[in-house]
């Protein structure tokens, strides 16, 4: 019984932790959307824009990855 409650708590906690991925998703969407618009307007600078886009996406993704790591730690380490 105790273990079952603990497992349920872990599952709920891991699920709640992944709410943090929401922000990362929105951020990546905005970044890539803006970058694609910029590239469509000015294709000559695609490579520069792409570099900056990958950088921004990596930063935005990092937050979501923190949420993922917290969730993985809750599930498999705790």
């Amino acid at each position: 019984m105790e273990e079952a409650v603990m497992l349920a708590g872990k599952a709920i906690g891991a699920g709640l932790a992944m709410i943090g991925a929401l922000g990362g998703g929105v951020g990546i969407g905005l970044a890539v959307g803006g970058a694609v618009q910029a590239m469509a307007r000015n294709p000559d600078f695609s490579s520069t824009i792409q570099t900056n886009m990958i950088l921004g996406v990596a930063f935005a993704e990092a937050v979501a990855i923190y949420a993922l790591v917290v969730s993985l730690i809750i599930l498999f380490v705790l």
């Binding site: 990596a58 993704e61 990092a62 990855i65 923190y66 993922l68 790591v69 993985l72």
Partner: peptide
């Protein structure tokens, strides 16, 4: 931290 966890999280997941 950000370097380490970004790579770990992505590939482990």
């Amino acid at each position: 931290l950000s370097f380490a966890f970004r790579l770990l999280g992505n590939i482990f997941a």
